[in-house]
Design a protein around this nucleic acid. Structure first.
Lengths: 227, 227
DNA sequence: TGATAATTTGACCGGTTGGTAAAAACATAC
DNA sequence: GTATGTTTTTACCAACCGGTCAAATTATCA
């Protein structure tokens, strides 16, 4: 028989389509799910969870609404899948911050990588920002759990660098916040950045300018050198 | 007769209630409109434009939906009114940046004032952020018009300070972006900030810590002093 | 080929949403 | 009081939205 929804009680998984008989997904499943998630990223990231509609996502994915709902049972299932798979890659750069490396080089490359993510994955950044603005109702646990744990760990690394005199004394948490804020700004507030910069520097060059500026800001600050 | 909607063609104004006969608004109009705007700020700022419903706003304002629609003809009218009145106060601190003042003190106090706004008016900040995330469909013109003009003007001020050796050589536009990003982060990403800081420092003390950190970051950077 | 399972579609449903119509309630001036 | 204008309520609607259902279509493989 076709499909087995209707609360049969089994497979309360998540992104698994009705067809959980042959346990592994076919090529076509894999591909369709990916297309859905890509479309959903587009729609969710610019409208937020409540503002997005399944019809919008379905149309962006080039399929009918019931067809989409065959792969993901609910709108929320799509959203959660997206958010979770994103959170992982989103924290990669911070994970890569190496306690054994050269402090200044490590922070410098962290800033650079975060900025590259804003350039290359602005939708992901905006999705995340949208979720935050709404009070993170879907990922509160991740925030106080894995994310906090990771930040705590890296804050400790930074503190040790401070103790060794490798970087200036400062609050490591607010340092991390500042890096997040300044880099993600170029994805989340892209319209504003482009509007303000105008025709001249609004091209891709703005990311290079930003990188140059941020490296200077974070390491030298604004005070002029007393020559 | 009661009301005059129905496309009579007249008064295509905006926030003006049906009662545009006696040209000035009564005390009760003034008060109700304010209550609506306050409620709308609450709802819009945490759900975005599409995610917010008139019913939600009406309930938060303590009145029925049709009653609310008597003061503002459409959901969009409420939103636009809110956004415009907000944009003005939002740019006040930047307007106050004084070319004649001491450069370092001016920038320092700009950062402080922006941070205070994040602390005291987080809803306004989030409303603005929401609009930006969605590509600023309602205020595109303000962005490329008045806002760009103001930023251009202040960027020129900063450039002159650089020329006089008062602050380090840097891109004034990206400096302004960095100040916006770091300060607004504490309003827009409040959940994340609190989750990461945990019980200990998540109280109001976080704004003082942030202020201290940002002042150091912007003026001294992270490089340790060569004692 | 035919049996079987996977995928897609069109029609539909109950609830919500933005907004309207009309009349009732209230205030005010005379 | 009554006439006039303002504010509020009750009832309502058409469009939309998340999701379901049953049937039709297509892929898979013995």
């Amino acid at each position: 028989m076709a499909g087995d929804r209707g609360g049969t009680g089994g497979s309360e998984g998540m992104a698994v389509p009705r067809a959980a008989k042959t346990q592994r997904r076919t090529r076509i499943q894999e591909e369709k799910e990916e297309r859905i998630l890509d479309a959903a990223l587009e729609v969710f990231s610019s409208n937020g969870f409540r503002g997005a509609t399944i019809d919008q996502i379905a149309e962006a994915a080039g399929m009918s609404k019931p067809n989409l709902l065959y792969y993901f049972r609910t709108k929320e299932a799509i959203y959660r899948t997206l958010l979770e798979s994103m959170l992982f890659t989103w924290l990669e750069p911070l994970k890569a911050l190496d306690a054994e490396g050269d402090p200044e080089a490590e922070i410098r490359s962290y800033i650079r990588r975060k900025l590259e993510m804003s350039r290359d994955f602005p939708r992901e950044s905006r999705l995340f920002a949208n979720e935050m603005l709404q009070g993170a109702p879907h990922i509160e646990d991740d925030l106080t759990g894995p994310l906090k744990a990771l930040v705590d760990e890296k804050a400790e690394v930074i503190r040790s660098w401070i103790k060794n005199g490798k970087i200036a004394r400062c609050d490591p948490y607010h340092l991390i916040f500042a890096i997040w804020a300044t880099t993600q700004h170029y994805a989340d507030f892209d319209v504003q950045v482009c509007a303000v910069l105008g025709e001249n520097r609004a091209g891709e060059g703005r990311f290079e300018d930003a990188a140059r500026f941020l490296e200077q800001l974070f390491f030298e600050g604004l005070r002029p050198k007393k020559a």
